[in-house]
């Protein structure tokens, strides 16, 4: 395979131009549609944007900008690229196990528990939590507020209908997570889908919420936000961590993704670790 000789100045210019294009695209989306991706982390943004450029049959980010601004269908598709996070029931089973063993005993002492699941995507982890709390006998005292920026995925979360093909993995996660019943009893199989028991949804409120632009909407005892902040840059992570801190009661619990950490933000000193490995924290000041 022959390759043109390397020309540092030309490559540098191309990269700088790419930065300008990404900036203009996100600024245009913000002004026209109100979605704010301006403080999303660059490396992932770059990959996701280029994926959409090629999928639309285009060759530059500028061309994508034009299409996105004039064609709301294209914006919908880009929005899915930028905001969908794949998930599974009881993902990272040891997280749920730690929650069961170390957090549930604390929650038992509360008359009422408010839980915010921020960035819930298609809802698998919300339904998982409803099962766990049911098995622990405290679900009737809990209310879960499940939010996401994206209405389309939120509707999926609300429906509670998931591909039957994922049930094998879900079942094995459920068992590793310390599940106490039989996983298959939570759903009814219909063709290629598993329809989950509507009773699990009784204490879940699904609502659109944008972590980037919206304010806090309640005080909570528990906040989950797993593998959402990795897509934000430092400034935006800082903003959202402040939002969480201000939305947590004293001694409230914060649960992050397995490789997300509060130690690079200014809220680090406001929490103590409940389980360092599983990224479960408790607000202490």
């Amino acid at each position: 395979m022959s390759q043109a000789a390397f020309n540092p100045a030309a490559e540098q210019e191309k990269l700088d131009l790419e930065m300008v294009e990404i900036h203009l695209l996100t600024e245009g989306i913000y002004r026209h549609y109100g979605f704010d991706f301006r403080d999303y982390s660059l490396p992932s943004m770059r990959r996701r944007i280029w994926k959409r450029v090629y999928a639309e049959g285009l060759s530059t980010i500028s061309a994508l900008q034009e299409k996105v601004l004039h064609d709301s269908g294209c914006m919908e598709r880009l929005l899915l690229d930028l905001s969908i996070n794949t998930t599974a029931m009881f993902r990272d089973p040891t997280f749920y196990l730690a929650f069961r063993n170390k957090v549930v005993p604390i929650l038992r002492t509360y008359p009422f528990v408010r839980i915010w699941h921020a960035g819930c995507s298609t809802g698998e982890e919300v339904w998982s939590m409803a099962m766990l709390l049911t098995e622990e006998g405290i679900y009737n005292r809990c209310r879960i507020y499940a939010t996401d920026i994206n209405e389309a995925v939120l509707q999926k979360a609300k429906d509670g209908i998931f591909p039957i093909a994922s049930m094998q993995e879900n079942t094995s996660n459920y068992i590793s997570a310390g599940g106490k019943d039989t996983f298959s009893e939570y759903y009814t199989a219909r063709y290629d889908y598993a329809i989950f028991r509507p009773s699990l949804r009784e204490n879940i409120v699904f609502a659109q919420h944008n972590l980037v632009t919206d304010a806090s909407f309640n005080q909570f005892n528990v906040i989950f936000c797993r593998n959402v902040l990795i897509y934000f840059n430092n400034a935006l992570q800082e903003r959202v961590q402040q939002l969480f801190l201000n939305s947590l009661d004293n001694f409230g619990i914060l649960g992050l993704g397995r490789k997300e950490s509060i130690r690079f933000t200014s809220v680090a000193d406001s929490y103590e670790e409940i389980d360092a490995e599983e990224r479960l924290y408790r607000r202490v000041r």
């Binding site: 660059l42 490396p43 992932s44 593998n227 990795i230």
Partner: peptide
């Protein structure tokens, strides 16, 4: 993923 000076993770 690598950003100049720091790492990023993605799912």
């Amino acid at each position: 993923l690598v950003e100049r000076g720091s790492f990023d993770l993605s799912k």
